[in-house]
Computed example of a mutant assay.
Amino acid sequence: MNTQKMPLKNSLCLLLAATIWGIAFVAQSVGMEYVGPFTFNGVRSLIGSVILVPVILLLNRPKNADSRTSSGSAASQGTAPSPHKSRDLWLGGISCGIALFAASNFQQFGIKYTTVGKAGFITACYIVIVPIIGLFLKKKCSPFIWAAVAMALIGLYLLCITDGFSVGKGDLLVLVCAFLFSLHILIIDYFSPKADGVKMSCIQFFVCGILSMIPALIMEHPQISSILTAWLPILYAGIMSCGVAYTLQIVGQKNVNPTVASLILSLESCISVLAGWVILGQKLSAKELLGCVIMFAAIILAQLPEKQK
């Protein structure tokens, strides 16, 4: 079996997820003009969870008689829930929800203090962090990965370090979020073959939404009027970014090398820069653009296959 090959369906799912997330950086930035970060993430996650309920009901409709004869092919496409255990589903959904809660809120707070484009590219550091964490999980790293780490550090310096040799607060928060998203990717890699992807996605958003609303109610005291004012970015982030994109990630990442999957997902960084420029009019300096180019080169270098001996 060739593990390097990725089915076209998986590639398209991950690419579409990256596109939705890249544009979502704009929605996240605009939405916080009206509500706090915890409120934004709490409401969008709960919307994403609710949106997936009818999808789950639709996918679990009783099949016709001939479905029994084609159960083998259905399982290979990830639609047969029979081999899955409810323990793995709930454990995976709750674990993903906790990781997503931490990662998305660090990102949301970081976006308050930096531009959409910079936030997108720093978040993409997970492409280098994922294989590094893999070392501690007894997974070998190619020499290309270490070169990519060095390039990513140079790119981050050009992108984030200001004239006074200090990292902006927003940049640092988004960097922490990149590490947390790396953990999220590895958790999905572990649980996605063991559980129904759409159900696990629904559980993770419910967990993330509840965990986000607790500090939102304590610290931000959200008003219904403010939430309604930010209806457009919240609905985009809830329906598209949560309900659609994260489900596409879980489905698309199934039985796929997490490092290979993270390459496609990292394209959200390029899309976020374009979206910030086109929609919000945010521009990067020549130094920051050079940092973006070097970081993207590091992202590609990290994916080069090692020669077989």
Rank of each mutant, 00 (worst) to 15 (best):
Y190H: 15
K138A: 15
K118Q: 12
A27P: 00
C202T: 10
G117C: 13
G197V: 03
F206Y: 10
L263Y: 12
L183Y: 00
D189E: 14
Y236R: 07
G170P: 00
T247F: 04
S212N: 11
V53A: 14
T79Y: 10
T114Y: 07
C141R: 07
K199E: 13
G134P: 06
I264K: 00
A75F: 12
F144P: 01
S70T: 11
P233H: 03
P143S: 11
I224M: 11
K283D: 04
A74D: 15
N41H: 10
K287Y: 09
G170F: 03
L91D: 00
I239T: 15
Y34D: 12
F181T: 02
L159P: 00
Y190G: 02
E288I: 11
S71P: 02
L135P: 03
I129C: 01
C177E: 05
L52E: 02
G168P: 07
L14I: 09
I250Q: 06
P7Y: 14
L217N: 07
G120I: 06
V130Q: 01
E33V: 00
A24F: 06
Q28R: 05
S201Q: 10
L58F: 13
N10L: 11
V251T: 08
A150L: 15
S11N: 06
S86V: 13
L217E: 08
P233D: 08
E288G: 10
L248W: 02
E33N: 09
L274G: 15
